[in-house]
């Protein structure tokens, strides 16, 4: 495993917005090993999503280099690119927006299987059921439309769609920030299990440091289009070397547990110290 799975080298991207030039990426470099999770954090407008979109070939950079499995990823085009896309998948922040509102869950999951001829079984319906089971969903959801699912179920389907491609890397752009607090942990657990089972690598984009702390041993801090700091998550969180990282850490809400006032009624959980 000497060769990194993904090598991003000096990416630049400037958008033209109403005559004003916005530098979204100003020389971003990073690399990611097979099976690893790297988090990219940063304040809004820092360029996180643009970085993801460039890596996914949804946006073309102005200059820079991306190597995927050692091959020039930006040089691919047409059918060759479409074939190789299988190995690099994405889970979007808003799971409702990420599905064609008119397609059933079954169709949504059949598409990647059909495009890449991946169905292990002869019957695509069986493969769909298998995919749903892998993300903890029951088979009868296949007939539903995306808006008929809960937020957590939708994000599971999004993960299943990525898994259908048997990718080497999944880019997760804020995968839980649109979800209810009580289902976030379920999705993070699922992502963790999937990684253990398949050895897929994650590029996790988030501004929630707590999620990053849980998921990613390595962290890169992006600010105004450049990586200002990168390294082990634990190290950066305890002794940040950049103002951007410091600001994010300071801004993360902490649960304030002052010793509870003596309760009027005896609390059975008094001893449960958080």
């Amino acid at each position: 495993m000497s060769e990194p799975l993904l090598q991003v080298d000096d990416l630049h991207k400037t958008f033209d917005r109403g005559g004003r030039r916005v530098r979204a990426l100003a020389g971003v470099s990073l690399d990611l090993a097979r099976g690893e999770t790297l988090a990219v954090v940063g304040a809004s407008g820092g360029g996180k999503s643009t970085l993801a979109r460039v890596i996914l070939r949804l946006v073309e950079p102005d200059r820079g280099r991306v190597l995927f499995s050692g091959r020039d990823w930006l040089g691919l085009g047409g059918a060759a690119l479409r074939r190789e896309r299988r190995r690099l998948q994405m889970v979007f922040q808003d799971p409702l927006a990420a599905f064609n509102p008119r397609a059933t869950i079954g169709q949504i999951l059949t598409d990647p299987l059909a495009i890449h001829r991946l169905a292990a079984t002869a019957d695509p319906a069986d493969a769909v059921v298998g995919l749903l089971a892998r993300v903890g969903l029951s088979a009868d959801l296949a007939a539903r439309l995306p808006h008929e699912l809960s937020g957590g179920q939708r994000q599971r389907v999004a993960i299943a769609r990525a898994l259908a491609c048997e990718p080497d890397l999944i880019v997760l752009d804020e995968p839980v920030s649109a979800l209810d607090v009580s289902v976030r942990a379920q999705i993070l657990n699922l992502l963790h299990r999937v990684q253990v089972e398949t050895g897929v690598a994650y590029l996790l984009i988030s501004h929630d440091l707590a999620v990053v702390r849980a998921m990613a041993p390595r962290l890169a801090v992006i600010d105004q289009g450049t990586i200002v700091e990168a390294g082990a998550t634990a190290t950066i969180l305890t002794s940040p070397g950049s103002l951007a990282a410091q600001a994010l850490i300071d801004a993360t809400p902490r649960l304030i547990v002052s010793p509870p006032a003596p309760p009027a009624t005896p609390t059975p959980d008094g001893e449960r110290k958080p």
């Binding site: 479409r82 299988r86 990420a98 064609n100 598409d111 495009i115 769609r161």
Partner: peptide, 26 residues
């Protein structure tokens, strides 16, 4: 510009199929 069109590209769908299968019906 919607995410689901980006998602269709990400899974490697052919542009013509995206145009007439994903975008046009909506």
């Amino acid at each position: 510009e919607r995410d689901y069109v980006a998602a269709a590209r990400v899974i490697g769908m052919h542009p013509l199929r995206i145009a007439f299968g994903e975008v046009l019906p909506n």
